[in-house]
Design a binder for these strands. Structure first.
Lengths: 227, 227
DNA sequence: CAGGTTTTGCGTATGAGATACGCATAAAAG
DNA sequence: CTTTTATGCGTATCTCATACGCAAAACCTG
């Protein structure tokens, strides 16, 4: 039998409590004290099961994402598109996920499951293993980045609804000197940045779709030149 | 004339000092006290010129990037490729740049200059303004994400050289159950993840090039369907 | 130049947060 | 029942950001 006093909590419990706090009050509110209080324990009790707060954050990141949904029937392109949307959706459920500083390549079970899922979509393509990884990494990078942008904007909008939407265009017009930045000024004149609050959100969505389209188009071309 | 005591420092000085600290000791070492010491002032003196540490971080982010280099002659594709490499290089000079939490769309002069530069590469293409922005945002997203990955790995390598390189493949093999993650297991068997320390760095570089290639290929196809 | 006004430099103090350390306690082993 | 071992957690320390208020400097008016 195992010696010593029986643990009343484990790392998973702590991670769960921490996630509950982050979901309810944001990642900034996740302190060792707050998490301990959430589970009715003393602060220092947590350190028996978690080496440091950094480690806890890593555990949170692993546990934050849902399991990847099963891919729908279809070719690799439809599947990867679906996958990218699913990643985006999963991140949107836990916006704080992107605030956790990453410490290395993924080793968490859930992250790996997502990776596997995306690689599965490419199974029937003639790509080499390294290329598949490249495609998936590139796509994940894009989705994460775009999600970060969306979440950041949504955050900024919450903080100060008045200062958003069409304000960005206005602000830029004051800063941008058409002589120094002609291309930007030109785009600015086209009104792309003058969106009201509602349209801005849709725009982020559209931008995501567009970027996704471009990337997958590139993959298709690459595969085409190979088959 | 302006009333009152003459300022001996300004926000730009503080930003410079903060950047010097970040360059030398990393962003984690940037505290108000440390920055003040760096410039031979008292801690609280800084607050006359900077509202909060967050504001200082934003200023640092704006000032961290070099001016965008002039684009070489060539078509949009060569230019965007060059631009992406230049962004990557600029970030590599200041790895801490990516650790600064972003608070909204870019308004710093330097960021806007980079944006303008990329849009300039697309000037002669038949894309609409919104599409140009989409292309550039997508590309920037990708470059930032990939840079983050590279920097993170380099960081991890510094922290513990032994635990890297081919270790990642080994670790994965212990975690991955081929029944639960068949596609990942397959890729794993191909040995893509078993790189020695040196090759890993080159691999990140190659992955960047590959992803960049895919994205630009997608843009090219998109433009082709339009011209 | 004296006095008033305004703005800066900065010492002191507060409060949050991470975490080292050590003791008391619970549970298994002998 | 004593010894061993691992846990729960109170106390204490250290690092930081930052509010507050006073004093010094530089301008203004008379």
């Amino acid at each position: 039998m195992k010696r010593g006093r029986k643990p009343t909590i484990d790392a998973a419990d702590i991670t769960r409590a921490a996630i509950a706090v982050a979901d309810a009050e944001g990642l900034a509110s996740v302190s060792m004290a707050r998490v301990a209080q959430e589970m009715g324990n003393a602060t220092m009790a947590l350190y028996r099961h978690v080496k440091s707060k950094d480690e806890l954050l890593t555990l949170m990141a692993d546990a934050a994402m849902d399991e990847p949904p099963p891919l729908p029937d279809g070719d690799w392109r439809e599947q990867l598109g679906f996958w990218a949307k699913a990643v985006l959706e999963a991140i949107r459920k836990r916006p704080w996920f992107l605030q956790i500083p990453i410490s290395g390549p993924p080793t968490g079970l859930t992250s790996l499951a997502w990776l596997d899922s995306a690689l599965g979509a490419l199974r029937d393509t003639p790509l080499e293993a390294g290329e598949k990884v490249g495609v998936v990494m590139g796509l994940m990078t894009f989705v994460h980045g775009e999600a970060r942008l969306g979440v950041t904007l949504a955050q900024g909008f919450e903080d100060d609804p008045a200062a958003f939407g069409s304000q960005y265009g206005k602000v830029l017009r004051e800063i941008v000197d058409p002589r120094r930045m002609p291309a930007l000024a030109e785009v600015l004149d086209s009104g792309v940045f003058d969106l009201d609050d509602v349209a801005a959100a849709e725009d982020v969505e559209a931008e995501f779709d567009f970027g996704l389209h471009l990337f997958l188009e590139g993959v298709a071309t690459h595969i085409g030149g190979r088959a």
